[in-house]
Simulated scan of single mutants.
Amino acid sequence: MLAVYVAHTNADEPLAGLVVGSLDEPAVPPGWTTVEVRAASLNHHDLWSLRGVGLPADRLPMILGCDAAGVDADGNEVVVHSVVTSDAWRGDETLDPRRSILSERYPGTFAERVAVPRRNLVPKPPELSFAEAACLPTAWLTAYRMLFTRAAVVPGSTVLVQGAGGGVATALIVLGRAAGLRVWATSRSEAKRARALSLGADAVFVPGARLPERVDVVAETVGAATWDHSLKALKPGGTLVISGATSGADPPAGLNRVFFLQLSVVGSTMGTRDELERLLRLCVERDVRPVIESERPLEDARAAFEALAAGDVFGKLVLTR
């Protein structure tokens, strides 16, 4: 079958090991099934995999891709929840110490077919296209959990989104607006700041700018480059929720500010199957749709990866079949 996979990793030139070619059909363990992939979306996780982060050489070749929407073996339209837990785990999937996601231990979604545990399939609402649904299980689910589970925002709260433009950041803006939040966003790019306003952000700023007032919550995915500003932007008792560090994972500590102002620094990663179901329902009932930068056929995956690596993307990149 046609697949997009890592043949070898390269920390400095990640696309050097990217291959679009033929691989064997996925194995289907007991309790698993196959999904005919109609659409799958890219995430920064795919670039990290190409660099060898979390993907040792003995697992290669590995098909990339965490997110997918398609048709299961019974003909049902489904969305794939990409967090794979150990068989005995019950409860919040993100807390299983042995969890992984597709494309880490098991072949990913950038292929004609993917094998997944049956419990990981969620019905796709007919109101969402396959491309729209394929954007939700990683970036949009991460944003949903950051806002509503980990930061526990309430309508009327002010949220600062650092680094508007990426999949998680655009999801934070759209979901925050739908939930009745006042959403502010930062970006180095004037064009991306303008697009953030068009998505519903109430105000936009250059990174590090002095804000009109301190905020209740900062949603952080950038890391080192914005960490100090994120802490300074919070009002006393505020919450910084972080799900990634695309600019580096070793930010200045700022511990004196954290304890003196009684700030909460909260980690967040991915989301549960139940949260994915609620996210899908929210998208339908509030007419919310993911921001899609472009859709390309699976055969043109390299062009999508080049765009992701260059950073000139606003929203999600989708591969289709």
Rank of each mutant, 00 (worst) to 15 (best):
V258M: 13
T109D: 04
N120A: 14
L50A: 12
L15Q: 12
S22V: 13
V222Q: 02
L2F: 03
G237F: 01
G176Y: 07
S189E: 04
V35H: 02
W227K: 11
G52W: 10
L317H: 08
T226E: 11
R182F: 01
L255N: 04
P29S: 12
A11Q: 14
A88W: 12
L172V: 07
A27H: 09
R59I: 03
T34Q: 14
L263A: 04
V241R: 10
K235W: 00
Y106S: 13
E213A: 15
G91W: 09
L60Y: 13
L15C: 13
R113P: 01
A139K: 01
A7I: 00
R286I: 02
L175I: 12
T186G: 14
V215F: 04
A225W: 01
A209W: 10
E275V: 03
D274G: 05
H45Y: 02
V291R: 05
D87I: 00
R59C: 01
A3H: 12
R321M: 07
R273A: 12
V183K: 07
A111E: 04
I292D: 09
G311A: 10
A73H: 13
V258D: 04
T138A: 15
A303C: 01
T138F: 10
V53S: 09
D46F: 06
V78K: 03
W48S: 13
P117R: 08
P290A: 05
L282Q: 10
A11L: 06
V291D: 08
V116S: 10
R286Q: 09
V78N: 06
A203R: 15
G238Y: 06
T34D: 00
S243L: 00
H81R: 03
R321S: 15
P97W: 04
T158P: 02
V258C: 10
V161E: 04
E275P: 05
P236Q: 12
A40V: 06
L18Q: 10
V174W: 00
M1G: 14
F148T: 00
C283N: 07
A203H: 13
V183R: 05
E213W: 03
P126R: 15
R177A: 15
V284K: 08
V258N: 05
L147W: 08
L121I: 11
G244S: 14
I101M: 14
R214V: 01
R321F: 14
L95V: 02
L55D: 09
T85Y: 02
L298A: 08
T138K: 03
L276G: 08
E77R: 15
L160D: 11
A3Q: 06
V206F: 04
H8V: 00
G254V: 01
V217S: 05
P30A: 14
L211C: 11
R193G: 11
G254W: 01
E295F: 02
R281E: 15
D96H: 10
H45L: 14
A69K: 06
S230T: 02
R302M: 11
A304Q: 07
A151H: 07
V313W: 10
S247F: 03
E104N: 07
G315N: 06
S103V: 00
A7S: 15
S247P: 01
V284Q: 05
A143P: 02
S86N: 09
L298I: 09
V288S: 06
G208K: 12
V53I: 15
P97H: 01
E93I: 13
